[in-house]
């Protein structure tokens, strides 16, 4: 309770939380507010915004409702962002914990693999992965996670290296606990807080990567995405700029909201730590 109050103390955190809340409501309400296929034709093509109040943000080149697309696009952006970040954090924590706890050869092998992934730009990695396997929601999530797990892996490893020297890890060895149980039951839960602090950056980056993939036509073709909307609007950028600008603003606000809310969480936990 007081933790929540601390979180909401900074204006940045308030703004971030508000944006995220609006976004989540949009994503959850999309099927109710705009039932049916958002990609269905709803009216005349290239209707500008604020002309027809049944289509408040107008229509695109094919006459699809931009507002409906925006709502359904929020679903995709959020789902892909959260799923990719969760996958990246999971893979990173496991790899980092194993590397840090095992040390020696296992550590070397795992960290060289991490290096290899980190040296390739994550967007190229995602691009290559999607073009080989083919675009679908699951593949896009996997492709983004593939480039994002290295950061959490390094942070987890550094944390594990310090935790494994503590007395309670020695104590777990003394009672005969299996090394894997020590790593995942005793060490990993205590190494997680700094890893989780990365999550806001990873979610924001994942949303942007997803948009970029969709922009290049490598998103799931059966779903509306903001990146896809921007790409669609690009062809008529001079005559109907709103088709690119509206999803663009949505994207910027989303990334900003995720980032600010994440900073707020980090800030409130840091204050708590310095108080104790």
């Amino acid at each position: 309770m007081s933790r929540l109050r601390r979180f909401f103390r900074t204006p940045e955190a308030k703004a971030g939380a508000t944006i995220l809340a609006v976004l989540i409501v949009m994503a959850l309400a999309a099927p109710m507010v705009f039932p049916g296929d958002p990609q269905a034709i709803a009216g005349p093509a290239l209707l500008p915004p604020f002309q027809d109040w049944s289509l408040p943000l107008g229509t695109d080149r094919l006459g699809r409702d931009v507002l409906a697309e925006l709502f359904h696009g929020a679903r995709t952006s959020l789902a892909v962002g959260l799923a990719a970040a969760a996958a990246a954090l999971f893979i990173g924590s496991v790899v980092g914990t194993l590397a840090g706890f095992a040390s020696g050869l296992i550590d070397d092998v795992l960290m060289r693999i991490t290096d290899a992934f980190q040296t390739v730009p994550s967007f190229l990695l995602a691009l290559a992965f999607v073009s080989i396997v083919g675009p679908s929601l699951g593949v896009v999530v996997a492709a983004i996670a593939l480039g994002a797990w290295t950061g959490p892996a390094r942070v987890a490893r550094a944390e594990v290296l310090s935790i494994r020297e503590r007395d309670y890890v020695a104590g777990a060895r003394v009672i005969g606990m299996h090394p894997l149980e020590i790593a995942f039951r005793e060490v990993l839960p205590n190494a997680l807080p700094p890893v989780l602090a990365l999550s806001s950056v990873i979610v924001a980056a994942a949303i942007l990567t997803e948009a970029a993939l969709s922009f290049l036509g490598l998103g799931d073709p059966n779903r509306v995405t903001w990146g896809g909307m921007i790409a669609e609007g690009r062809t008529v950028l001079r005559t109907a700029p709103f088709l690119s600008v509206v999803p663009g603003i949505a994207l910027v606000l989303t990334v900003l909201g995720v980032y600010l809310a994440g900073e707020g969480v980090v800030e409130s936990t840091a204050v708590r730590r310095s108080l104790s």
Partner: peptide, 10 residues
């Protein structure tokens, strides 16, 4: 161990 707090998982 010496420090009973450090000797257990927090």
């Amino acid at each position: 161990f010496q420090d009973p707090l450090a000797a257990f998982n927090p």
